[in-house]
C-alpha cells in the first residue's frame, strides 16, 4: 500500500465571526487507522469533519485527501474523489421520502453502473453487513428506531465501497446495549473492508473500544495524536479533565 496519508490537514484556520475555532491545525491520518477526534463542546470537531468532506472550506490551510488537494481538478475528478469516502451523519440524514432500500441503492443508482438485479443483491448485502433483515428494506425512515437509522445510514455510507469512512457521533442517542453492538459492527467492518475511519465522539467507552489513535482537539489545534493508552497518560489539562469526567461519571461532573 502507498504511504501517503489518507487525510492530511495543514495549517487549518476557521473563523466563525470573531471566534477563531481552528488556529493553524495540523493532522494527518494514515491508511487503515481508526482515529477518534475528541474535544470539548464547540471546539470545532464537527466543523473539522465538514472541512474533510468539503462541505465547508477553512479560512486558510489545505485539506488533502488520498494525497490530493480536496478541491483540485475538474468537476468529474472532484466527484470521483468524493465517492472514495462515506459519511455517517449524526442524525443519519436518510432521505425521508425514500425507503430503506432506495436510500442504500441511491448512490449506486446515481453511478448507473449496476443492473437492477445487481442493485437488489448489493442492497441485500449491505443490509446484511450492518445487521438488518431484508424485510426492513421497504420501511420508511420515519418508521425506524434510532439504532436502525444509524445502521441504514452506515449501509448507505458503505454503498460506494469507500476507502475512508467518516462518522459523526456514531453512538450518540443510542442506549448502551445498541451502542455496544454498533461499536462492534464498526470494528468488524473496519477490519473486513480495510477501511480508514475518522470518528467524532464524546463517549469514552466508544473511544476505548474503537480507536487505534486519539486526536485531541483543544485550543484550536490537535494537541495530541497517540494511542488511547498514551493519550490517557498525557498531562494536558483538557485530556485529564476529559478522562476524569468519564471515570467519575458525567452526573457528578454536572453537579459541580
Amino acid at each position: 500500500m502507498s504511504t501517503v496519508p489518507v487525510v492530511e490537514l495543514r495549517g487549518i484556520s476557521t473563523r466563525f465571526g470573531n471566534k477563531l475555532v481552528h488556529d493553524g491545525l495540523d493532522l494527518s491520518i494514515e491508511s487503515g487507522e481508526m482515529v477518534a477526534l475528541v474535544g470539548g463542546s464547540g471546539s470545532g470537531k464537527t466543523t473539522l469533519l465538514r472541512h474533510i468532506i468539503g462541505l465547508t472550506r477553512p479560512a486558510s490551510g489545505r485539506v488533502k485527501l488520498f494525497g490530493e488537494d480536496l478541491f483540485s481538478g475538474g468537476i468529474a475528478l472532484q466527484r470521483q474523489r468524493r465517492r472514495r469516502f462515506g459519511v455517517l451523519f449524526q442524525q443519519g440524514a436518510l432521505f425521508s421520502a425514500l425507503t430503506v432500500a432506495e436510500n442504500i441503492a441511491l448512490p449506486l443508482r446515481e453511478l448507473k453502473l449496476a443492473t437492477d438485479a445487481e442493485l437488489d443483491d448489493l442492497v441485500a448485502l449491505k443490509l446484511d453487513m450492518v445487521g438488518l433483515r431484508p424485510d426492513d428494506a421497504l420501511l420508511m425512515p420515519a418508521e425506524l428506531s434510532g439504532g436502525m437509522i444509524k445502521r441504514v445510514a452506515l449501509a448507505r455510507a458503505l454503498a460506494l465501497e469507500p476507502e475512508l469512512l467518516l462518522l459523526d457521533e456514531p453512538t450518540a442517542g443510542l442506549d448502551p446495549e445498541r451502542s455496544a453492538s454498533f461499536v462492534a459492527l464498526i470494528r468488524t467492518l473496519h477490519k473486513a473492508l480495510e477501511l480508514t475511519v475518522v470518528l467524532v465522539t464524546h463517549d469514552v467507552d466508544t473511544l476505548k473500544a474503537l480507536a487505534t489513535q486519539v486526536a485531541v482537539l483543544a485550543d484550536g489545534r490537535i494537541v495530541s495524536l497517540a494511542s488511547v493508552a498514551a493519550t490517557q497518560a498525557s498531562d494536558h489539562p483538557f485530556i485529564k479533565r476529559f478522562f476524569a469526567a468519564a471515570v467519575t461519571g458525567p452526573a457528578e461532573q454536572g453537579a459541580r
Partner: peptide, 14 residues
C-alpha cells in the same frame, strides 16, 4: 461467498 449469500436473501417487493 458473502455476495452469493446476499443474492439468496430476497428483498420484499412493493
Amino acid at each position: 461467498e458473502h455476495s452469493a449469500r446476499a443474492a439468496t436473501l430476497k428483498l420484499p417487493k412493493p
